[in-house]
Computed example of a mutant assay.
Amino acid sequence: MKVLILCTGNSCRSQMAHGFLQSFDANITVCSAGTEASGKLNAKAVKAMAEIGIDISGHTSDSVSKYLDEEWDYVITVCGGANEACPAFVGKVKHRLHIGFDDPSHALGSEEFIWSEFIRVRDEIKAGFRKFYDEQIKR
């Protein structure tokens, strides 16, 4: 089973989704990429995942072009930008899904509010990808 998770910057939401899906089942090959990859991870996303025992600090922020020629069981977009700008895959893709989430890195306000947005989105990603895993993969 191979799953590619796409976002725009590949620094936050796709990285958290990657971490969760891999934590649910180590036998799944999970990769994440960005249509405009930032080349770095969002420090608050790394911290939010570490807080619940999932280490994504070793992940890399990669361009989707790295994966275009591969075959995928699932390609999942997690943000509106990636959903709209998702490239046509040359390789075989069995299922293309969109499971969208707000971008906590765009939150404005106090540090406490911004942190609460990272936690909220992290928890929504966990729930969304747990549902996907239970309904599409584990069954």
Rank of each mutant, 00 (worst) to 15 (best):
L4D: 11
L4T: 08
I5F: 03
I5L: 03
L6P: 05
C7T: 09
T8W: 00
S11I: 08
R13Y: 06
R13E: 04
S14A: 01
Q15C: 07
Q15G: 02
M16P: 00
G19Q: 08
F20N: 00
L21W: 07
L21H: 07
L21D: 04
L21I: 08
Q22R: 12
S23C: 06
F24Y: 15
D25K: 02
D25R: 05
D25H: 03
N27W: 09
N27E: 15
N27M: 12
I28C: 08
T29F: 11
V30P: 10
C31Y: 14
T35G: 07
E36M: 13
A37C: 05
S38W: 13
L41K: 05
L41G: 02
K44M: 14
K44L: 14
A45C: 02
V46N: 12
V46Y: 11
K47D: 14
A48L: 04
A48S: 14
M49Y: 07
I52E: 12
I54C: 08
I54L: 10
I56P: 02
S57I: 10
G58F: 09
H59K: 12
T60K: 13
T60V: 11
T60S: 14
S61R: 04
D62R: 13
S63I: 05
S63T: 06
V64N: 01
S65I: 11
K66G: 02
K66A: 07
K66M: 07
K66Q: 11
D69C: 09
D69N: 15
D69R: 12
E70F: 10
E71T: 10
W72Q: 11
W72K: 07
W72T: 11
D73H: 12
V75G: 13
V75S: 10
T77R: 05
T77N: 09
T77Q: 09
T77L: 05
G81L: 04
G81D: 13
A82G: 14
A85P: 02
C86L: 06
C86N: 09
P87H: 13
P87Q: 12
A88F: 15
F89Q: 06
G91Q: 12
H95R: 06
H95L: 02
L97F: 13
G100I: 02
F101R: 02
P104V: 00
P104H: 04
P104R: 03
P104S: 05
S105E: 08
A107F: 06
A107H: 08
L108F: 11
L108C: 07
S110P: 09
E112D: 09
E112I: 05
E112N: 01
E112Q: 10
F113C: 05
F113G: 00
W115D: 13
W115M: 00
S116D: 12
S116F: 00
E117F: 01
I119C: 13
R120W: 02
V121A: 03
D123S: 09
I125P: 01
I125L: 04
K126L: 08
A127P: 06
G128N: 06
F129G: 05
K131P: 04
K131E: 13
Y133E: 14
E135D: 15
R139E: 10
R139H: 07
